[in-house]
């Protein structure tokens, strides 16, 4: 039976002619990375045994085998980081698999124009991610302390019976939470706008819960920037400076990058 094809990403063929693809382990340990040329575009792939990698098997592994997920996610990441360092690469999502080589070639040919456009758009640029985290207790306390209305309310309820006090305090807590959300949103938005000024493109992504991050603090902002290589130093310095300014406010900024342009080489819009 024909082997399946795990697709990592696409690179311009001419770049591969300049720097050859080194030997590297594939998605399955027994296989190696290989390139499949489709005219001016080259797909970086590795072959998979069709019986060992059925849709059902992979889905089951992703859902029930965290160790496998971790290992394979890092493998995918590692290969793409390497490609990103050496070539202009349009990265594909984790576990993009074709049933056979013909199927891949057909897709690549039909998307050739979009891929060329993508190469042009992301070439010479870097994708960076910025996450902002906050210490809930601290931010809430600061918000309350700096809010005269809430301060006054706190004083007022001291006169009430313990039962009433309990309910009034709950109300103030809810108010504090609302104020905190507002404050976080304003601050993060402000930071985002300022950093977006340095970027070619920027986007706000969904935040992740504590369950996912495994951290004690909460995520209040998750964003992604496409930067000209020449702007990256300025971007990183600005993030550091802003983070220092936030010292004591309960907010913390964390930038990671450069990532392969997963976010900004998205062709799905064009593909539709």
């Amino acid at each position: 039976m024909e082997k399946k094809i795990y697709l990592y990403g696409f690179i311009p063929t001419e770049e591969l002619e300049r720097t050859a693809l080194p030997e590297h382990e594939g998605f399955d340990e027994k296989e190696k990375l290989i390139s499949i040329q489709v005219d001016s575009i080259t797909a970086i792939v590795s072959r998979l045994d069709p019986d060992a990698y059925t849709e059902m098997v992979i889905e089951d592994k992703i859902n029930n085998d965290l160790e496998w997920l971790q290992k394979k996610a890092y493998h995918h990441h590692e290969v793409l980081m390497f490609l990103n360092k050496n070539y202009t690469v349009v990265p594909l999502s984790f576990c993009t698999i074709y049933n056979n080589q013909d199927s891949l070639i057909e897709t690549a040919s039909s998307q050739a124009h979009e891929l060329e456009d993508s190469f042009a758009e992301i070439g010479g640029k870097e994708e960076w991610n910025l996450k902002i985290y906050y210490d809930e207790e601290k931010v809430k306390r600061l918000v309350t302390e700096n809010n005269p209305v809430m301060q006054k309310k706190r004083e007022e309820i001291k006169e009430l019976s313990p039962g009433r006090q309990f309910f009034e305090r709950k109300k103030i807590d809810r108010m504090a939470e609302k104020e905190m959300d507002k404050e976080l949103n304003e601050r993060c938005n402000e930071i985002h706008l300022e950093l977006s000024g340095l970027a070619t493109r920027s986007d706000v992504k969904k935040t992740l819960g504590k369950d996912a991050t495994g951290r004690k603090d909460n995520m209040s902002w998750n964003s992604v920037f496409l930067l000209q290589e020449s702007e990256v130093d300025r971007f990183v310095e600005k993030v550091m400076k802003k983070d220092q300014q936030l010292n004591g406010s309960g907010l913390k900024m964390e930038a990671t990058g450069p990532w392969p342009a997963y976010h900004f080489s998205n062709l799905s819009k064009a593909a539709k």
Binding site: E55, V90, I97, S268
Partner: peptide, 9 residues
């Protein structure tokens, strides 16, 4: 960013 859909994606 699923740039190009694979058969099994």
């Amino acid at each position: 960013g699923v740039a190009i859909r694979g058969d099994l994606i």
